[in-house]
Nucleic acid binder design. Structure first.
Lengths: 217, 217
DNA sequence: TCCATAGGATGATACGTATCATCTTATAAG
DNA sequence: CTTATAAGATGATACGTATCATCCTATGGA
């Protein structure tokens, strides 16, 4: 690995030698992955909390406790709470994108969008908002966040769209985009509406939306 | 009005006479409508705030200030903040129900549902959440409120549905109910999604949902 | 004119929360 | 083993908010 640098006696002048490198660059007291790992754990916990309890369900103290830490270390990981929010939203979007893409990919091309609809509208998806689509859980709240966060949220949404559009019904891309908005509007609304109602009714709302979409295209 | 009770000299024994009535029942220092009026003003202000800023946008102090009062008198009007929340939600639902019913009633019976769709999806409706549908503004938040409030929210939603169903497309009531859920899911989702996006895109999302629905039934 | 009182105002309390300053400690490098 | 230092813990501050106790005052009736 570092064999070319291992004999410092051969280097002349003030060139970099292993000792200098380690004292300048490699001064890491914890495993290099350590901070990254806990950072990711915090974000994942926050992402679940945010989807389950809304934008202010991810209180600093609560999220840190989830990660087995105390509130004090928070600002070693994030410049502000908003930064955590953005990261946990991103995490949430990647979460459902992964689920939906995975489902879509193992179904015949023409049917992929139907698979996405069926996956999104499964009752278990509604039952577990902490693993569900951030749009269905906190869509309206996201519309009200601080101006500074909006561009980043729009970016996530645009990315979401671009990952879904390939699977959408329609010939031209413009058609697929229209289908994306129509289909996701219906699904987001159905999940939101369903969650207001007691279990059996909720499932009927979801099934109804599914029928509507599968027949509608 | 009270002429039958006006001559107290005619009554014998410990019967009710005007003096007693006024000292027992009619001891009202302010106009009887006074309290009701300010109560309604508080609720209307809260209803706007809640729809514009979310469930915790209606802070006691803020709402009272809107009404030209201070926070102290709040509990002369409401037993708790939750009580205000319920009342302002009810107000919000009555608000859009009135708008939609009004629009629907002045259009030919078979077309009423189309008018509702066009009204709900107007860009101005999206621009002014404080006068819009509570479901589009705080649907997911309502799904997370305290268990004790849920029944009352469900009641409001059921009432909303029963007011819209008569205008929905379909022959039998069951069909109309299915249409209600499909149509409102799509509209709620479209408004929520649209509000995440910058103005011109938002309007396309709304128009897209409208086309989808008008063609879909 | 005076009074009783309900509506409203002032002010206090208790709690949650974001943020930051300062202290402690685990650990890789030497 | 020692040491430097970054990750994390403790604790403090500041602010918002719900709730309530207590005070003030406008006003209809006498």
């Amino acid at each position: 690995m570092d064999s070319s640098l291992s004999s410092s006696s051969r280097s002349q002048g003030p060139r970099l030698h292993p000792g200098m490198i380690s004292s300048i660059l490699l001064v890491m007291r914890y495993r290099p992955e350590h901070k990254i790992e806990t950072h990711e754990k915090i974000v994942k916990d926050a992402s679940r909390r945010v989807r389950a309890e809304g934008l202010n369900g991810a209180a600093v103290a609560a999220v840190m406790r989830d990660a087995g830490l105390t509130h004090g270390g928070f600002y070693k990981h994030f410049a502000s709470k908003d930064e955590l929010l953005i990261e946990s939203l991103k995490e949430g979007f990647q979460d459902i994108i992964a689920s939906l893409v995975h489902a879509a990919e193992q179904s015949p091309p023409g049917e992929a969008w139907k698979t996405i609809v069926k996956t999104y509208l499964r009752p278990e998806m509604s039952e577990h908002p902490e693993h569900g689509c951030p749009l269905a859980t906190l869509g309206p709240e996201l519309a009200r966040v601080d101006k500074r966060m909006k561009p980043q949220i729009v970016t996530e949404l645009v990315n979401y769209k671009s990952r879904m559009v390939p699977f959408m019904p329609g010939r031209r891309t413009a058609d697929k985009e229209r289908a994306f908005f129509a289909i996701f509007s219906t699904m987001i609304g159905a999940v939101a509406l369903g969650r207001l109602l007691p279990d059996p009714v909720r499932d009927r709302v979801l099934a109804n939306a599914q029928d509507f979409l599968l027949r509608g295209f």
